[in-house]
Design a protein around this nucleic acid. Structure first.
Length: 558
RNA sequence: AGGGGUAUCGCCAAGCGGUAAGGCAACGGGUUUUGAUCCCGUCAUGCGGAGGUUCGAAUCCUCCUACCCCUGCCA
C-alpha cells in the first residue's frame, strides 16, 4: 500500500486501527455505540457517536447501536426512543437491528454458570455493607469472603436459586473469584450478577437477576464481533477485568477496549444526573429545552447535525482531559448557518418611523436575494411603505463615535430599500423616544445617495405588512465557565438568569408567513434563528440559535 | 512506595529523534447595501520542572511537580 493510499489517521484510535488492519489482526472494523437508556443524549455522547459511527464509515466497517440495559430500575422506553431519534438525526445508521444487552441475557447467564463450573465465580451472602468492609481500601488489601470457597455444586444450586426468584434483593450476589488483594479494586472479586425484582423494559419479568456492566459489556462486544470497543477514560481501570472475563469465557472472539477522554464544555454541565436535575426541578422546560446541551435541546435551538459533526471533528479525540470552549461549538454552527440559511429581516424591538414624504397608502415590493453569496437560495419579496419599523438599538439621538446607524439629522440606508434621514424625534411623557419622523430619498433605490453619505445599513420591516412574532433569545445556561468548580455551592447557584429573554413585540418580513418548525434563517444583523415547535401561523415563534459575530459590541466594550 | 492515567499558545490539537501544523479565541488591516461573511497579516527560540543520553530531544532515560479516575449488588 503506497503512502497516499493509506487513510490519514485523525486520532490515536485510528492509528491503532490502521496498524491492526495492516498487520492483519483484523480484516474489518466493528464498533458499537452503547448508551444506557437512562437519560437523553448530550453533546458528550455526540463525540462518542461521531467517533464510533465515524470510524465505521471511515474504514468501511460497521457500528452497532446497543442499549446497555442491565439496570432496569433506571431505564425506560422513553429514553430508548429519544436516543434512536438522536442518533439518526445526527446522520448515522447502525448495522442491522437495534441491539440490547438484554438480548444476550440467556447467553450471559450460561457464561456465568460456566465461570462457576470453572471455579471462577461464587455466590456470596455478604451484605452490601459487609462487602464494602471486606473490600479493603485504596491503600489496604481486601480480605476473602467466608463464602468464597464453596463447592461448585453449591454455587450452581445457589445461583439457580437466585434466578428462580425465591431470594430477596440484596440477600446474595454472584462474584467473580479473582483477587481480593489486587491493587486494582475492580479485580477484588467484582459482583457480576445481582438480584433485582424489577420489571425490565425489554424482557419484562423474565429475569430477576441482572448482570453487572462489567460482566455484560465485554461479552456483548464479543457476541457482536466488535473489534474495537471504544469507551471513556473512567473505564480504563476496568480493562483488566474486561480482559479477564474474555479470557476465561468461551467467547467467539476477542474485542479490545480503548479509552478516550470525555468531552467537557464550559458554561454548561454534561453529567446525566445534573441534566436530569435541571429537568426534574424545572429549571428548564424539559430535556429538549434549547438551553440544554442535549442533542434534542441543540436541535430545538437550531443546531444542525452537520455543525455538531463538524464540532466533533474540531475537538479531536485524545486521552487528555480538557474543557472545550463553547465558542468552538458556536463557530461550528455559524459556519454552517452562514453558508446555508436564507436571510430575512426581523425587527426584535420595534421603533416606529413615519416617512413624511412617502405617500400614505402607497406600497412597493422589493425583490431581495435570500443569500448574499449563494443565488441558488433564490430571492424573497419585502414590502415597503410610509410606516416602517426599525430596531430600537439602531437609533441614537446623538450619534456616538463610529456610529453606523440612524441618529437625529443623519442618514442611514434601509437594507435593500432607500436611504432615509431622521428629521424629528417624538417622545412620550417619560421622555422616551416613541417615534421618528423621517424623509426618504427616492433617488437612492439601488443607487448611492448623491452629495452625501449614509452612515450605514440597518434592517427594517413595513409596519403594516410585517408579521407579529415572539422571539426567544437564548444565551448560555450558566453565567460562569465552570459551574461545578466551587464545591461549597451547587451548580444551580450559577444558572444564568438571562439565559432566556422572551420578546413579544417582534415583527418579521411578510415572506416568513409560511414557515414550518425547524426552518432556519439569518435575521440580518441580529443572528441565526429557527422556527420553534410552539410556532403557529398566526403567532410565529423563533429561537435564537446563536448571535452573529459582533465587532461593534467589542468596540463598545473597549 | 495503593492502582491507573494526563501534561505542547487563552481553549482544542498535530507532532512518534532532524530543529514547534491546524482550528477556536484575540489583535491589526482590506472588501462589503448585514459592524455578518470573505480576504490579508500578527500570535510558542518554546513543548509541566530539573537533570541526563545524542551531532541533534516536545519526542529516549532518570527524578520531581500538578491535575484527572478508582473503595455501587450504577454505567
Amino acid at each position: 500500500m503506497s503512502k497516499n493510499e493509506t487513510v490519514k489517521p485523525t486520532n490515536f484510535i485510528h492509528q491503532i486501527i490502521e496498524q491492526d488492519l495492516q498487520e492483519q489482526r483484523h480484516d474489518r472494523v466493528v464498533t458499537r455505540f452503547p448508551p444506557e437508556p437512562n437519560g437523553y443524549l448530550h453533546i458528550g455522547h455526540a463525540k462518542s457517536i461521531c467517533l464510533n459511527f465515524g470510524t465505521a464509515v471511515k474504514y468501511a466497517g460497521e457500528c452497532n447501536l446497543r442499549f446497555d440495559d442491565t439496570n432496569p430500575e433506571k431505564e425506560s422506553q422513553e429514553y430508548i426512543d429519544s436516543i434512536i431519534e438522536d442518533v439518526r438525526w445526527l446522520g448515522f445508521e447502525w448495522a442491522g437491528e437495534v441491539r440490547y444487552t438484554s438480548d444476550y441475557f440467556q447467553q450471559l447467564y450460561d457464561w456465568a454458570v460456566h465461570l462457576i463450573q470453572q471455579g471462577l465465580a461464587y455466590v456470596d451472602h455478604l451484605s452490601a455493607e459487609e462487602m464494602r468492609q471486606y473490600r479493603g481500601t485504596l491503600t489496604e488489601p481486601g480480605k476473602n469472603s467466608p463464602y468464597r470457597e464453596r463447592s461448585v455444586e453449591e454455587n450452581l444450586a445457589l445461583f439457580e436459586q437466585m434466578k428462580s426468584g425465591d431470594l430477596p434483593e440484596g440477600s446474595c450476589s454472584l462474584r467473580a473469584k479473582i483477587d481480593m488483594a489486587a491493587a486494582n479494586i475492580n479485580l477484588r472479586d467484582p459482583v457480576i450478577y445481582r438480584i433485582r425484582h424489577a420489571h425490565h423494559h425489554q424482557t419484562g419479568n423474565d429475569w430477576c437477576i441482572y448482570p453487572s456492566y462489567d460482566f455484560a459489556h465485554g461479552q456483548s462486544d464479543a457476541i457482536e464481533g466488535v473489534t474495537h470497543s471504544i469507551c471513556t477514560l473512567e473505564f480504563e481501570d476496568h480493562r483488566p477485568l474486561y480482559e479477564w472475563l474474555i479470557q476465561n469465557l468461551p467467547v467467539p472472539c476477542v474485542p479490545k477496549q480503548y479509552e478516550f477522554s470525555r468531552l467537557e464544555l464550559n458554561y454548561t454541565v454534561t453529567s446525566k444526573r445534573k441534566l436530569k436535575q435541571l429537568v426534574d426541578e424545572q429549571h428548564v422546560s424539559g430535556w429538549n429545552d434549547p438551553r440544554m446541551p442535549t442533542i434534542s435541546g441543540l436541535r430545538r435551538r437550531g443546531y444542525t447535525p452537520a455543525a455538531i459533526r463538524q464540532f466533533c471533528d474540531m475537538i479531536g479525540v485524545t486521552r487528555s482531559n480538557g474543557v472545550v470552549d463553547v465558542a468552538m461549538l458556536e463557530a461550528a454552527i455559524r459556519e454552517d448557518l452562514d453558508a446555508n440559511s436564507p436571510r430575512a429581516m426581523c425587527v426584535l424591538r420595534p421603533l416606529k418611523i413615519t416617512l413624511t414624504n412617502y405617500v400614505e397608502g402607497e406600497e412597493e415590493w422589493f425583490e431581495l436575494p435570500a443569500h448574499p453569496k449563494d443565488d441558488s437560495l433564490g430571492s424573497r419579496r419585502v414590502s415597503f411603505g410610509r410606516h416602517i419599523l426599525i430596531e430600537q438599538e439602531d437609533f441614537e439621538e446623538v450619534a456616538p463615535k463610529k456610529w453606523k446607524r440612524l441618529a437625529t439629522g443623519e442618514a442611514v440606508r434601509l437594507r435593500g430599500a432607500y436611504v432615509i434621514r431622521c428629521e424629528e424625534v417624538i417622545k412620550n411623557a417619560e421622555g422616551e423616544v416613541v417615534e421618528l419622523l423621517c424623509t426618504y430619498d427616492p433617488a437612492t433605490k439601488g443607487a448611492n445617495p448623491e452629495g452625501y453619505k449614509a452612515n450605514g445599513v440597518i434592517h427594517w420591516v413595513n409596519a403594516e405588512r410585517s408579521l407579529p412574532c415572539e422571539v426567544r433569545l437564548y444565551d448560555r445556561l450558566f453565567s460562569v465557565a465552570d459551574p461545578e468548580a466551587d464545591k461549597t455551592r451547587t451548580f444551580l447557584d450559577y444558572l444564568n438568569p438571562e439565559s432566556l429573554v422572551t420578546l413579544t413585540e417582534a415583527r418579521a418580513e411578510p415572506g416568513l408567513a409560511a414557515v414550518a418548525a425547524g426552518d432556519k434563517f439569518q435575521f440580518e444583523r441580529m443572528g441565526y434563528f429557527c422556527v420553534d415547535s410552539d410556532s403557529r401561523p398566526e403567532r410565529l415563534v423563533f429561537n435564537r440559535t446563536v448571535t452573529l459575530r459582533d465587532s461593534w459590541a467589542k468596540i463598545q466594550g473597549q
